[in-house]
Design a protein around this nucleic acid. Sequence first.
DNA 1: CTGAAAGCGCTTACAG
DNA 2: CTGAAAGCGCTTACAG
Lengths: 346, 346
Amino acid sequence: MITIYDLAKQTGFSAPTISKALNGNGKLSEETRQIILDAAKKAGYTANMAAKALSTKHSRLIGVILEDVAMKRGFEHPLFGGLLNKFRHEIEMAGYDLLFLSKHFNDGMSYIDHCRYRDVEGILIVNPIDDDPEMKTLGACGIPCVSANEFIPGVCAVISDNETAGRRAAREFYEAGHRKIGFLGAPFRENSPAALERYKGFKAEIEAYGLEFDERYLEVCDAWWDQAGYDGMKKLYERCPDITAVFIVCDALAFGAMKYLLEIGKTIPDDISVIGFDDDTTVLKAAPMLSTFRQDRDRIAQLASEVLLQEIAGIPGPEVVRVPAEYISRASVRRFVHVPQMGFIS
Amino acid sequence: MITIYDLAKQTGFSAPTISKALNGNGKLSEETRQIILDAAKKAGYTANMAAKALSTKHSRLIGVILEDVAMKRGFEHPLFGGLLNKFRHEIEMAGYDLLFLSKHFNDGMSYIDHCRYRDVEGILIVNPIDDDPEMKTLGACGIPCVSANEFIPGVCAVISDNETAGRRAAREFYEAGHRKIGFLGAPFRENSPAALERYKGFKAEIEAYGLEFDERYLEVCDAWWDQAGYDGMKKLYERCPDITAVFIVCDALAFGAMKYLLEIGKTIPDDISVIGFDDDTTVLKAAPMLSTFRQDRDRIAQLASEVLLQEIAGIPGPEVVRVPAEYISRASVRRFVHVPQMGFIS
DNA sequence: CTGAAAGCGCTTACAG
DNA sequence: CTGAAAGCGCTTACAG
């Protein structure tokens, strides 16, 4: 391992001068800077981050909280995996490395202790353990934070515009002539608001058409995976066999729901129309006709990294940044021909 | 931030004594150890890793090379995502953190420079960029390495027993009465041997039955994703419409291949039998009847972490560790009734 | 523009 | 069993 002192000896300058040349700060003649840079390159010098971190208190490490209790897929989560691919890339371009924060590190060190241990400079919260009390303390821990999925007091959330998407789904069904529309949700939680916001938007839009949303048409599944969708759909459909359409808060759930519908002999969209959420490739292989919403994972990741980097630089971030979720129209929504269309003579 | 010196002041002991107590090394009376530990706990002391790393040269960081050029799914790769979930867990239990090594870090620093920069103690190679010349140098770079997918000179590979799996697939078809069996492969590369090894085992088994494997029955797709499987199957089937079965080296490819077969009006397994590889949930949602092989990602991850930790402790690892891939029999293989069975009078 | 001094928080021999 | 000294590789004021 070659150090700054080796370079000092070789070039005849002092260690601080080497440091200045390498980091491009302080006043230095262009000539000596060049000499030093050349020597560094020739010697194959690489800075030692531990030493840098110790003296500057800057580790160039971004902590990531990723637990995925909801889906239990970890890196393979349909939203989070892709989000991290992009986030990792953005952060690396800025000279930071990712570090996964963990509760089972060193006999149950907390997230914040893990951060202090590694001098983590910023935190991306993707998905923590449900109702972890430590989450509430993150906003005030002194380390810049950004969240890509949760609402946490005092931390900026970069999150899909779920409410608008919910409205969009309702409108899609309404304009296609549907009037009895079910909503298949997932656990409604204030801090992890995806399902709830989609529901709010959906309901508001329905009511904007002068219809009343019958609460019987709402069924909340108790998890985010296939089987929960199957079970939820069964309950909903047995209770309300009159629905002609259903909006489902995620594709994994939609997959289970459609499985149930198919099993009882229904066809999609002839008997019942479906809109999902996530554009989950896993599901789309099996159900390529499923209309759904695509969360813009790249955009979320990019905005999250921007906000975080800004915060690290001392510029406070906004409370929330919304990213539109794009409606992907495929073939799971039936259009009733009797619906009056604008511009036609009826 | 509270340091060892604060603890020294509070307890009346010296810094080195605090250090010994905290790390459990050196001789120390049980009494003073207890006093110090209590004080540390009360003060909420967390060690500073940068300082530790600087003085010990041990960063407690494991570098991970994960590029996924083959599938372009990164964290979402069907094998690698799950593997990393488990590997991360194992490594954390041992007090290490993951650090992703990257070529686009700090203006194109190499993997090895990235390691030196962070004092990385060990490297897990999951999937590098194809034919990256740096890979060949890893085995001799002085940092313990383990590979979960590739063969790299001087580094232990923990990898599925592809050859046995290939034989198993051939046997499955043979015993079901198939005699004209196609093989749909993916790029054969010596260092990334999955496809090639599966082929070798498959062919050897076929020949062990006294049959000759007709090279016309072999088609090598040019990538690892759906479309390549579709295209490859098309070529193979147009050339050899007499095949009654096909072994396909990965499920993603199998998905594309089955799509083609279905499109031309074939049924599976009545017209053609298929065995895939990976037990890829993505594909299995769409094709739940697909018989395939499950790579034991947890086991691979666990063995890889064990080997690496051992190497870090100075105990050299074996050259290669094989992990059985389990055959999962579902319903994509047709059994011909006319096959003579052992024990029956024919 | 350049360098001597001190410090970041910890650990490692080495004395006592 | 405990502590004084020096060092890990870098940076930050502060002189000159």
